[in-house]
């Protein structure tokens, strides 16, 4: 394989491992903003997400009970969608010079 393709193959591989495998071990603690909101007392101001029932909500695939599989699938779908959408968009932008 050419060097260029090898780099992209490696990049996609690392990205998929991060989203599909490592993501299961991510900290479940509230993030900085959520923690501050909780401590200062404005967390309760948050309203439900309008698309909270969507099939990939909260990085899980609805209907899949196994947590590890659920987050792995959601992450993998996200990576491929992100790759496809943004590469198309950037190729289009690069062409329109």
């Amino acid at each position: 394989m050419k060097l260029k393709n090898r780099f992209f193959a490696l990049g996609v591989f690392v990205t998929l491992i991060l989203a599909g495998v490592v993501s299961f071990y991510a900290s479940g603690d509230p993030d900085g903003l959520e923690k501050v909101a909780e401590e200062k007392g404005f967390l309760a101001d948050a309203t439900d997400h309008g698309l909270g029932d969507s099939p990939l909500a909260d990085y899980g695939v609805s209907g899949i009970a196994d947590d590890r599989l659920s987050v792995a699938l959601a992450g993998t779908i996200g990576v491929f969608l992100m790759l496809a959408l943004s590469t198309l968009m950037f190729k289009f932008l690069a062409k329109r010079k």
Binding site: F8, G11, T15, L18, M82, L83, S86, F90
Partner: peptide, 16 residues
């Protein structure tokens, strides 16, 4: 640029 977007998406899933 597409790879970077996908990588950032993946890395944003990884709360430390």
């Amino acid at each position: 640029a597409g790879l970077v977007a996908a990588y950032v998406f993946a890395a944003q899933m990884l709360n430390f």
